[in-house]
């Protein structure tokens, strides 16, 4: 930084001449090289080792390299992993659907009627997303617990004598927590696509006598489709891979994330954990591939 531009440029000039002769421009190597190196070493590497270890066995915390697909068979046939995947997929689908229903009106409101407050409203949506995950999930434990805000308020007001026990440590609380946590990821892509929409199309449809539902189905929905796909992608994938919500709010509900963690911790079966994680990874990739064709991920952020 401190060197003068003159010195730098002489060096740069020589550098540039060398650059122009190489088949891969040095600019590319310098700019993309470090990122590529990082991702190859610490992203591709870990995924590779994960799939490899998934084919091994573990005894007394020592890996035994007798490569086989037994662990993968176990993921699909074993009762616990199968239950975990069923629960996780069902709750993730439900979370995605509820996020869509909750997010559409508010995204529409901010995009089309936010007026000069648009930016402030958007920041209000984004603030929770930027604040610490586990802290906000913990907040729900205070709300939903048997002595939590909801139960104690209802008892105090005399509506119930006994705390409602399905509020926490159930599939319900996992669903609620996931919907809560990923909602901004549905609102923001929807907002982005709704904001670009041409108002005159909607006005014209109403002028021609379309009902509100028809306007939504025939105009708003198709024109915000990329946002919908983007939001669905985020919410579904994040829910599938979630760990914090199911372990903090789910009680003992069998769920993929906590199950993977268990295999790497008390379970002491890394290969099994790696196999479950590999299958999860595969599901995520399939969903991504199916949905990515409809969206530009760079536009979403």
């Amino acid at each position: 930084m401190a060197t003068s531009d003159g010195k730098r440029s002489a060096l740069g000039e020589r550098f540039e001449r060398a650059v122009d002769r190489s088949p891969l421009p040095a600019g590319v190597v310098v700019t993309s090289g470090p990122v590529l190196l990082l991702q190859l070493l610490f992203f591709v590497g870990p995924l590779f080792i994960m799939v490899t270890i998934a084919t091994m066995e573990m005894e007394n915390l020592v890996l035994i390299p007798d490569y086989s697909l037994d662990n993968f068979v176990e993921v699909f046939t074993g009762f616990v992993p199968r239950t975990a995947f069923t629960n996780t997929v069902l709750i993730s689908v439900l979370t995605t659907l509820s996020a869509i229903v909750i997010a559409y009106p508010i995204a529409y409101f901010i995009a089309r009627r936010g007026g000069s407050h648009k930016n402030q409203l958007l920041i209000l949506v984004m603030i929770p997303w930027w604040t610490n995950f586990i802290v906000r999930v913990y907040g729900w434990r205070l709300i939903l617990g048997s002595r939590g805000v909801v139960n104690s308020a209802l008892i105090y007001a005399g509506f119930i004598d006994q705390p409602i026990d399905w509020l926490l440590n159930t599939k319900f609380s996992i669903w609620l927590g996931l919907t809560y946590l990923w909602l901004p990821f549905m609102i923001l892509p929807l907002y982005t696509s709704l904001e670009k929409m041409d108002q005159s199309l909607i006005d014209a449809a109403y002028d021609l006598g379309a009902s509100r539902w028809v306007v939504f189905r025939r105009i708003i929905l198709p024109l915000s489709f990329s946002g919908l796909v983007g939001g669905t992608m985020f919410v579904f994938i994040f829910s599938m891979g979630s760990y914090i919500v199911p372990s903090m709010l789910g009680g003992g509900t069998t769920f993929v994330g906590p199950l993977i963690d268990y295999q790497f911790g008390f379970g002491g079966d890394w290969p099994m954990g790696a196999a479950i994680a590999s299958v999860l990874m595969l599901i995520v990739m399939v969903v991504l591939r199916a949905l990515m064709r409809h969206v530009e991920i760079e536009e979403m952020i």
Binding site: Q39, P46, I49, M50, G241, S242, I260, A277, V284
Partner: peptide
């Protein structure tokens, strides 16, 4: 895709992958 992939992989998978790596 090497740039986009790490953003889409669940943190849990990356976490245990890194642990093994």
């Amino acid at each position: 895709s090497l740039i986009i992939a790490p953003m889409t992989v669940p943190g849990l998978i990356l976490g245990v992958g890194l642990l093994m790596w």
